[in-house]
């Protein structure tokens, strides 16, 4: 086969690849695949022409963005979807803010301490505690509130890492991935956020609170009990 030949002849060849089962499962469980996983990204890029119609039959779009990442967007009933929790959203948006700053270019990381400080700067301590966990009331004890907020942020980070938005590194460092740009999407095009949100809701990228779809609160409860 010459280098100009397409890498895969048909869908059967794609599915027969060793990487397919793992990547298929990762995409279906909501993971984003970016260029920091070069082999996986290349595989999806090569196979996209066959995988897009394949996933459409399951009611999902295989999306490749100009920011350099793939993800599976559920648009029908066949592939279940979940909404990110408010904690995951706030943490993801704040990390996306870091991703847009030149200061993170040098290392591509931020520390957990920096993230918490920025969240407090943006929201204020009291709003932050409520925002991170809506069942939790802001407590008078400052140190207790800070500890709980930290635990909520760490929990959100773990789930964002499972979705391919960040890498959790040693010494409380967080590696920023290109998929964080998904959090920027609602503010990217129009200055009017509501207008942009309506477009994203129609596309199936974003959900609003009044929709029937459930967020991941059940998992929160389980973890809280644990």
């Amino acid at each position: 086969m010459s280098s100009l030949d397409p890498p895969f002849a048909d869908l059967a060849a794609v599915i027969a690849e060793d990487a397919f089962p793992r990547l298929d499962q990762a995409l279906r469980s909501g993971r984003h695949v970016d260029r920091r996983s070069p082999a996986d990204y290349q595989f999806l890029e090569d196979a996209a022409v066959f995988l897009e119609p394949h996933y459409r039959r399951y009611g999902a779009d295989l999306v490749q963005t100009s920011d350099g990442y793939f993800y599976l967007r559920p648009v029908g009933e066949r592939l279940p979807a979940r909404r990110l929790t408010p904690a995951e959203m706030l943490v993801g948006q704040t990390l996306a803010l870091y991703h847009l700053e030149p200061a993170t270019l040098e290392t591509g990381t931020v520390s957990l301490g920096q993230l918490l400080e920025r969240l407090r700067d943006l929201l204020g301590n009291e709003v932050l505690v409520t925002a991170l966990n809506h069942r939790r009331k802001a407590t008078a004890a400052q140190h207790l509130a800070e500890r709980k907020a930290r635990a909520d942020v760490v929990r959100a980070l773990r789930r964002l890492a499972a979705l391919g938005f960040v890498d959790l590194l040693e010494n409380d460092q967080i590696g920023l991935r290109d998929a964080l740009m998904r959090f920027v999407e609602p503010v990217r095009t129009a200055p009017d956020l509501s207008e942009a949100l309506q477009a994203l809701v129609r596309r199936g990228d974003v959900a609003l609170p009044d929709e029937g779809e459930l967020d991941d609160d059940e998992v929160d409860e389980d973890e809280d009990e644990a």
Binding site: P74, L97, P186
Partner: peptide, 24 residues
């Protein structure tokens, strides 16, 4: 972009939208 994102975070819970992800 940064300014709009910063504003959207700061205005929480005015815009309570969330991203949707697959969860098979």
């Amino acid at each position: 972009l940064s300014n709009r994102l910063r504003q959207a975070i700061g205005e929480w819970p005015k815009h309570r939208y969330t991203l949707r992800v697959a969860q098979a």
